[in-house]
Amino acid sequence: MEDISEFIKKIEFEIDEIESETINPETKFRELEEWSSMMGLIFIALIDTEYDVTVNGDDLINCVTVQDLYNVVKSKIQ
């Protein structure tokens, strides 16, 4: 799987209002001003289409930081 910086770029691309490089691996994504339950769905859909991996709601609930989310995706690919 590509490294986390590419993963972050893809996330930033989906969040319209966000300045690039606002997000880093330690970012707690639920604390972002733009966060909403729809954003959670968009994350799931993004991961589904980009990495062909299905992350479910429970996976997402267990993630706090962007790094956590990246790790879940990576583990599912392997």
Binding site: L41, A45, D48, G57
Partner: peptide
């Protein structure tokens, strides 16, 4: 909603 969203996206 999540299932419908994923269906549409796929």
């Amino acid at each position: 909603s999540p299932q419908i969203f994923l269906f549409a996206l796929r």
